[in-house]
Write a protein that binds this DNA or RNA. Structure first.
Lengths: 162, 162
DNA sequence: AAAATAAAGTCAAATATGGTCAAATCATAT
DNA sequence: ATATGATTTGACCATATTTGACTTTATTTT
């Protein structure tokens, strides 16, 4: 068993223990505790606590910094979102984006209000770049929004009566 | 949690408590109270009580000096949004946008989920243009979103339990 | 009016975190 | 034995916070 395995175990233990869905660690502390270099913690996190494996990572640098690991459950909707992301990249027209959003709403992944807000970020006149850069930019923005959608859902954040 | 966070909390508590829209502090006193150097108070104010977040800072040096923090209020949501639109144009940094969104959420014009979604459309790496065009683009997108927000609100559309 | 005193402001250095990336090493499968 | 992938390590980077020396301004004292 490698150190990475041991650190993984340790983190999962405290994470899965007593209903806790989230832990906050200090990278340097853990590194110290297991007598390894700090970047090893990143390695463990990058290989064992990925989103696909059901974990959400957030962090902050500087004084009072931390790494937060949140346990999340996989949702069927992820697959749909991933498919859409694949579909719209590397470029998508405004109409294409509109279609996608309509579909997401049918599937109840977003509500009408959110659909309006998202569209506002994707319109031709707003992005205002020559083609084909504009369609690339739109794809990047929408991809980022969709990715966030996955994460938000995972965090079990307020769904606002949807 | 860093000292800066604690001082921020403390100030917001007394500021938001009992309808007060304004507080006056003595920098050296607060510094004393939290056992930090006086300039740390400036740091807290500069990073946590920005104009974009809806705070107004005034101060006076010398004997009887003070720092006054005012929570800026608007009569209605339209005015607030218009004010923000004016503020962020023709360009806004990512931090400026974050501050503005935090404020909109405090004012319950958007919820946390919407805040995340909107941020996804404004991030540096996503917009991916050289400055200053990037900040211009961000301002255009956010302006369009805010305009939509005004419209949605006035339509009395589903607010999703907000 | 000048000097002393009492604030607050600025700015850069020091410190405290975490992130990235690639080279070195180790383990495993063929 | 060698190729391949996983792990370990460290140099360098990015960011947030803390600290303090120096500056500016207002008031009070002489």
């Amino acid at each position: 068993m490698s150190i990475s395995d041991i650190i993984e175990q340790y983190l999962k233990e405290i994470l899965h223990a007593n209903e806790k869905k989230v832990i906050e660690i200090k990278r340097s502390e853990i590194a110290n505790q297991f007598e390894c270099v700090p970047s090893q913690i990143n390695y463990v996190i990058n290989t064992r606590f990925t989103f696909e494996k059901g974990y959400l990572i957030e962090s902050k640098r500087g004084g009072g910094g931390y790494i937060r690991i949140t346990r999340v459950e996989y949702q069927d909707e992820f697959q749909l979102i991933d498919e859409i992301i694949a579909m719209i990249n590397p470029a998508v027209s405004e109409q294409g984006a509109l279609d996608v959003l309509e579909r997401l709403r049918e599937k109840k992944l977003i509500n009408l209000r959110e659909e309006h807000l998202i569209i506002s970020a994707l319109q031709r006149e707003v992005l205002n770049l020559p083609l084909p850069e504009r369609d690339h930019l739109r794809a990047r923005i929408l991809t980022n929004i969709l990715t966030t959608l996955k994460y938000i859902n995972s965090k079990g954040e307020e769904r606002d009566g949807m």
